[in-house]
Design a protein around this nucleic acid. Sequence first.
DNA 1: GGAGAAGCTTGACGCTTGTCAAAGCGGGGT
DNA 2: ACCCCGCTTTGACAAGCGTCAAGCTTCTCC
Lengths: 248, 248
Amino acid sequence: MPEQNNSHLHALKVSCSNCTLRELCLPVGLNRDELAQLDAVIRQSRRLKRGEYMFRSGEAFKSLFAIRTGFFKTCMSSQDGREQVTGFHMSGELLGMDGISANVHGCDAIALEDSEVCELPFSRMQSLSRDIPSLQHHFYRLMSREIVRDQSIMLLLGNMKADERLAAFLLNVSSRLATRGFAANDFILRMSREEIGSFLGLKLETVSRTLSKFQQQGWIKVDHKHIQLYQTDELKNLISGCIHAHSH
Amino acid sequence: MPEQNNSHLHALKVSCSNCTLRELCLPVGLNRDELAQLDAVIRQSRRLKRGEYMFRSGEAFKSLFAIRTGFFKTCMSSQDGREQVTGFHMSGELLGMDGISANVHGCDAIALEDSEVCELPFSRMQSLSRDIPSLQHHFYRLMSREIVRDQSIMLLLGNMKADERLAAFLLNVSSRLATRGFAANDFILRMSREEIGSFLGLKLETVSRTLSKFQQQGWIKVDHKHIQLYQTDELKNLISGCIHAHSH
DNA sequence: GGAGAAGCTTGACGCTTGTCAAAGCGGGGT
DNA sequence: ACCCCGCTTTGACAAGCGTCAAGCTTCTCC
């Protein structure tokens, strides 16, 4: 249900100009000189092992982080210990935008596999985006995209049943992997059943049961974290009714 | 649960410079000349009657809208007709930021009472914010605030029980009204039970029953849309466990 | 002012999902 | 290589919320 297009690459195109290279940035419309300025701002990338924090809720906000490689979850925790996963994030995505409003990070970002990120000091990106209009516009669009993503998750949590949520989740993961050149119908989940459940507003047992149900119906194959999608049409059918429709 | 501070006034301070006046803008740090530029960009305000659309999902995105007076809901509708309310919005709040990413509005915005809005043509705000750094920063913060708000609603929809959701909702409305100088413990709801339920991921009957339950316990008084809060402490107790806590 | 529609409340019932429990499997670390 | 711990699966049961239905109040429009 959340973004099923290839647009997350835009973040990659900006963030990895000093590594994954020039041509990735061109779509943003930067010239050679502007690229050099951008390179100068991006800090050396940081490597994180599985389980490490990219940032924590409550920490001072100084930078945005772009995922170069790897996989992350973001989550908030409540006073009584419950934690809610607010998103799963793959290469090319930009994290930390919720920290801008109060100059404090609003969630934890934790690596679910060994990962590599670029740090973008926000104040310098801000002044740079004054000089490079297309960069400014790009940032507005990225933040807007995050708003759209969050709202489609609100729709999922507010309207959909357990099997619809799982179907939407699997299709979302599948399409995002495909965008990055991985197999769309055969992948390894990097997160636990509990983390999936937390993200989808379900208990881990419900996640497990629903996956088993999908398997019994021949729609997917589940081997622990290894998922294969056999009949994506059936999954799409499940959520066809609850998908967002423009009114015109 | 969503924003319980006075920061929504920031949008007002920007948007209403040509009406609600100068001093409201100063906190953003604009000088006389910059204010004049801003005034020139803001279009004459528009009046809307109850039930009218400020914008519709699918329409071309050209402007953001600041609510000067009145009350709005934003909602998305799915193909099978179900609609989900994604937010309720009061004076001073800025709407339409989800349209930036795709140049298309992503939700409907509908007046729940006669209202008045300022239109901010986005491309002109964008170029103006290049010349006025504090305005640029202000916009980033407003968008970030929207992300934070959406994520706290995700937390509500993913983790909380019906009575916790209602308590969080009532306290949120109360605090936002107080911020605007209205009574915090005695107010008229502008939306129906069904709209509340849609926003909170509940059915209207559950909303009604839960309000009745609160009333039986002496915590509130319900007379249709007229709500009085008698024991906000009890409501706060309900949600104290599920409120967001920084990890440090 | 009256009639109809829309919104609200309340009850009875059932389904979906959460809770508790037990057992199996797999993976990571020593 | 082995062991232990954590993750997953599955079952039985309970509860919370949704569904259906009826009756009531309030608002709107003529």
